[in-house]
């Protein structure tokens, strides 16, 4: 088991590697002038890239009078957490936050579960119709969300027995404006299936056959052999999906109408539309919405980078 794992983890995946672990020696040995120039460009660029974040944090702890001061105050004169307190009072931001977290985690879990099951079937099983179904799966990636958006909205509206609908799906709002509607349509991801399938193909067949001889069911092989071996791919994919879902705006905008179901991006966006000048509260809300993904990113950076390497270097 351990042998197989290290085999899959290091040599079997070929190009997929956690990248800057190995330092690639540069084509040139640089003169110190060249190096200094590179650092200068990187530092200036870095400052420009980070400045908006600093400004957001700085604005979030200043009162509205100081925010509008000209010249701008980067370091707050009278730092205060008042904006946060007021934002939490006026906006149900705690609720939005939990909605975002709930939906993002649920979609991530659902996608990983369904995709890993499907990927296992595609990668390691032989059955009639496999190629056709796989082609169909890849084909769904070609369809832009815009085309399926309106029909999906209508389909959700007519889900039977939900949201006041009768068995024919008439009379109520179905899965519109519900957690079901936010989560279920996003449950299947062709991209996730494709990525996991590529990864699973590197698992030696002998390992699975040995388990089959020992009498393990396919479900058990999936759960106890394949899934543990796929941990790096699952981690990368999970983090990817989570941040993508945390960022998701268009879908909640279309199907959510009650305040109780607003996610953070939706809550903040509607706040901007209604309160065009309440920058003090907005900056506090922006910090609250950015922090979770930022923390996830800083902790799991390696997986992010690996996820991109996996998807980008097929």
């Amino acid at each position: 088991m351990a042998v197989a794992e290290s085999h899959v983890g290091e040599t079997g995946r070929g190009r997929i590697r956690p990248f800057p672990v190995t330092r690639h020696p540069s084509p040139d040995t640089l003169s110190w002038v060249g190096k200094l120039l590179i650092y200068a460009v990187l530092v200036v660029g870095g400052v420009i890239f980070v400045a908006p974040f600093v400004w957001m944090v700085s604005g979030s702890v200043q009162n509205i009078g100081d925010i509008f001061r000209w010249p701008p105050q980067w370091i707050p004169r009278n730092p205060t957490l008042d904006n946060y307190a007021r934002f939490f009072e006026t906006q149900r931001i705690g609720r939005f936050f939990l909605n975002s977290a709930y939906v993002a985690i649920a979609v991530t879990f659902l996608q990983l579960l369904l995709a890993s099951l499907a990927a296992y079937a595609f990668a390691k099983r032989q059955f009639p119709g496999r190629d056709a179904l796989f082609l169909l799966t890849l084909g769904t990636m070609m369809i832009p969300g815009q085309v399926t958006l309106i029909p999906t909205y209508i389909i959700l509206k007519h889900v039977p027995f939900f949201g006041g609908n009768d068995w024919l799906g008439q009379g109520g709002h179905g899965w519109l404006d519900s957690y079901w509607g936010l989560i279920v349509p996003q449950g299947a991801s062709a991209f996730a299936i494709f990525l996991l399938r590529q990864y699973m193909r590197t698992i030696p067949n002998d390992l699975l056959d040995a388990a089959r001889i020992d009498g393990a069911s396919e479900l058990r092989i999936w759960a106890q052999i394949v899934m543990p071996l796929c941990r790096p791919a699952l981690a990368a994919l999970g983090i990817f999906t989570f941040t993508y879902q945390w960022d998701n705006f268009y879908w909640p905008l279309v199907i959510v109408s009650s305040e109780d179901l607003r996610t953070l991006p939706l809550g903040l966006a509607l706040f901007v539309v209604r309160n065009r000048t309440a920058w003090d509260l907005l900056m506090a809300g922006s910090v609250v919405a950015t922090l979770p993904v930022l923390i996830v990113f800083l902790i799991f950076q390696r997986h992010f980078v690996r996820g991109i390497a996996m998807s980008g270097l097929k």
Binding site: F53, W55, D247, F249, P265, L268, A289, T290, V293
Partner: peptide, 15 residues
Amino acid sequence: FYLPVVTPLVIAAII
């Protein structure tokens, strides 16, 4: 340089 990528788009637009 990667920080803006993980920032929610709505927040980037607001800032």
